[in-house]
Amino acid sequence: MSSLRQAQDSAWFTSPDDAATRLHEAGYLADAATATTAYLAGTLEKPLLIEGPAGVGKTELAKAVARAAGADLVRLQCYEGLDEARALYEWNYKKQLLRIQAASSMADQSPQSWEETHDDIFTDEFLLTRPLLTAIRREQPTVLLVDEVDKTDVEVEGLLLEVLSDFQVTIPELGTVSATRRPFVVLTSNATRELSEAVKRRCLFLHLGYPDAERERQIVTSQVPALDEKVVRQLVDVVARLRELELKKAPSIAESVDWARTLIALQVGTLDEEAISSTLGVVLKHASDQARAVKELGLAASGR
């Protein structure tokens, strides 16, 4: 059986339409390009690199794939200074030291060479697995989310290359650990720096931007069905105007949903200037952004 046939037999989704339907059932409204790419990532067993501004649903897509497939989610949150010990594995040095001390205390009764002690302490019992190794070793369906990969140092990409190339990890003391069941891998990037071509070459690529007005209305309505349709349209229109401004941080889709829930909590029947001004902090988290919005939208600054 060919590798492609094997991949098809273990596909996460049976077709792009199946991906769209099941992701929708899992609470994620995927457009045609997103559904198709999610289907291909599972069928071809290739990592999926999702790039776009913060808050457009990159991380949520990985979570939705896990929910739709009934898989576990293993997440590696990237940050500056992330190293192999936090991403891949490390040894439990305290436990190893206790074993060495125990072996030393028993040396008079049962002499043991250093080679024997070494082989005894570098075993699975003393291995602390981190997200990358955890996902590779799992036999159950697993979604591996490498979140905000652009925040890591360039050196970490070398570590990712081994994982993404052959889905295996080399542990000097134990040998090579290969995946028995490849995880569905999602890497997200806010494009704060350019990723290496070597990493990109091993991935399918999907760019997610802010949705158009109709799709954002659908997303907000699906998440906050109790909000009046008229208010949803007003909210989406205002958010679109805010995104056109030169802000430090434009409102995300998640913040649109939070704003909708806020309006429900406040029992707002229409999103007028007063309602916008009093709740602007839900969608804009910088004082300079709020000041610009008040000026550009012609809002009253009083009461905020």
Rank of each mutant, 00 (worst) to 15 (best):
F122M: 05
T188N: 05
D120V: 01
Q140I: 03
R182M: 09
S113T: 15
L127T: 04
S165C: 08
P111H: 05
R137Y: 02
G209M: 04
R201W: 01
H207W: 12
G209N: 12
P111L: 04
F167N: 14
Q140E: 14
E197F: 04
P131D: 02
D153H: 15
K151E: 11
M106N: 15
L195R: 00
T176W: 00
G175D: 07
Y210M: 10
T170H: 07
C203P: 11
L208R: 12
E115K: 13
L204T: 08
T188S: 08
S110C: 04
L195F: 04
D120N: 09
K200G: 04
L159W: 04
S196K: 06
R181Y: 01
F167M: 14
K151F: 06
L144M: 03
G175N: 09
E115T: 10
F167T: 10
H118L: 06
V143Q: 09
V185P: 09
F184S: 06
F205V: 07
V163R: 07
V199S: 06
D124Q: 14
K151Y: 10
Q112E: 15
S178Y: 00
P211Q: 12
L127D: 07
V163H: 07
S178N: 02
G175K: 01
S113I: 04
T123N: 00
V185Q: 06
F126A: 13
D120A: 14
W114S: 11
C203N: 11
Y210P: 11
L132I: 14
N190S: 13
V163G: 09
M106I: 05
E197N: 06
T192G: 09
M106V: 09
V199L: 15
E125F: 05
D108K: 11
E148D: 15
F167W: 09
Q109V: 12
L204S: 10
A191Q: 13
G158R: 05
C203V: 06
L206S: 10
L204D: 12
E197T: 07
R130M: 03
T176I: 07
E157Y: 12
T117I: 15
L133M: 06
L145H: 06
P172R: 00
P131I: 00
L127Q: 04
Q168M: 02
T170V: 12
M106Y: 05
V163Q: 09
F184Q: 03
E155G: 11
T180M: 02
P211M: 11
L187P: 11
R202L: 11
T152V: 15
L174V: 03
E125G: 05
R193K: 15
Q109W: 04
H207S: 13
L174Q: 08
P141W: 01
I136K: 00
T188Y: 03
L161M: 10
V146L: 13
A191L: 08
D147T: 02
A107D: 13
P172E: 01
